[in-house]
């Protein structure tokens, strides 16, 4: 279990973390979402015991992350945001080093993961591509079967196939009752995995919500339609559909009623292209931020 209480750390440039509060239960995947520089990695540094909180506390399984970090780390798997392995080592040397430092006895899970992610462990680390390094980082984070797993932007660099594999792995671990925290700046990266998503910006949590509610809230509910003929747009303007925007032969329609009604109306025209735009992260922030901090 991860507990973060009133965690505050102000840096000299006024950035940092301010009264961050959250809790991740066993068997839960917690998505930590925010733009670059929002404070995600700073929070994670506190959880790993790399920095001392100014105020408040971070705890994992009841132990303080700063003063009792050694008690936590035996049961912790971690992927850093910037993956930098020890230089001059091969992948297998590195994994041996981590197993040795953790005192892991069995190599069973490690071999299973190597096979699963299809990694050639004889390769020297400096010759590895970004994707390979990512795989190595994943193996090193999961191979000792830790209870708590902290992942700082873990899937950048993986191809879609491996990304799928990784998402499956996370779900399996979750079923085993692991406590998992994943940070990302892309919502879709967390969409498939997280149960709860916390959004952070400028060092403050602005929303913590379960992913289904958030997804519903986020559905933008607009259609972008491109017509064959530009006149159709004009005739659409005269209808009672809510046209939020139009340009040339394109129109943006707000979904303010039963979907069937809109389609019935649209079916009269020749349509070239139909699109339901995906919500971008900025839009979410706009949504949760507009009212609060208009003039940042």
């Amino acid at each position: 279990m991860i507990e973060v209480n009133n965690l505050t750390k102000e840096f000299s440039n006024k950035k940092g973390l301010f009264d961050v509060d959250f809790k991740v239960e066993k068997g839960q995947i917690f998505g930590y979402l925010g733009p670059n520089g929002a404070g995600k990695s700073t929070t994670i540094r506190h959880l790993l015991g790399y920095v001392k909180p100014q105020k408040g506390q971070a705890k994992i399984n009841g132990f303080d992350c700063w003063s009792e970090s050694e008690k936590i780390h035996g049961q912790l798997g971690y992927i850093p945001g910037e993956i930098a392995f020890v230089e001059g080592m091969s992948a297998v040397d590195f994994l041996n080093l981590m197993s040795g430092m953790r005192g892991t006895k069995s190599n069973e899970k490690r071999n299973e993961l190597i096979a699963r992610f299809d990694l050639d462990i004889k390769t020297p680390v400096r010759k590895m591509s970004k994707g390979m390094k990512q795989k190595l980082a994943i193996i090193s984070a999961f191979m000792h079967d830790p209870e708590v797993i902290i992942l700082d932007e873990p899937s950048s660099g993986l191809d879609p196939l491996m990304q799928r594999e990784f998402v499956d792995l996370l779900h399996e671990e979750k079923k085993k009752g692991k406590t998992i925290l994943i940070s990302s700046h892309i919502f879709s990266e967390l969409e498939d995995t997280a149960d709860i998503i916390a959004i952070i910006r400028h060092g403050k949590l602005i929303k913590t919500q379960d992913v289904h509610t958030l997804r519903e809230e986020m559905a933008k509910n607009i259609y972008e339609v491109e017509f064959q003929n530009q006149e159709d747009v004009h005739s659409l303007m005269n209808s009672d559909l809510a046209i939020s925007n139009h340009e040339g032969n394109k129109a943006t329609i707000s979904v303010d009623r039963d979907v069937n009604e809109i389609f019935k109306y649209l079916s009269r025209y020749k349509i070239k292209k139909f699109d339901v735009p995906k919500q971008r992260l900025e839009d979410i922030f706009m949504k949760y931020y507009n009212d609060k901090e208009e003039h940042l």
Binding site: L48, G49, Y50, S69, E70, K71, H73, G74, L76, Y78, P80, E82, I83, A84, F85, V86, E87, M98, M101, R102, G103, S140
Partner: peptide, 18 residues
């Protein structure tokens, strides 16, 4: 210093070794 600068110290310190 190099390990801290390049970030690989993160790995060493994420283990139970103090």
């Amino acid at each position: 210093s190099r390990f801290v600068d390049r970030g690989s110290m993160a790995y060493l310190l994420s283990s139970p070794v103090s």
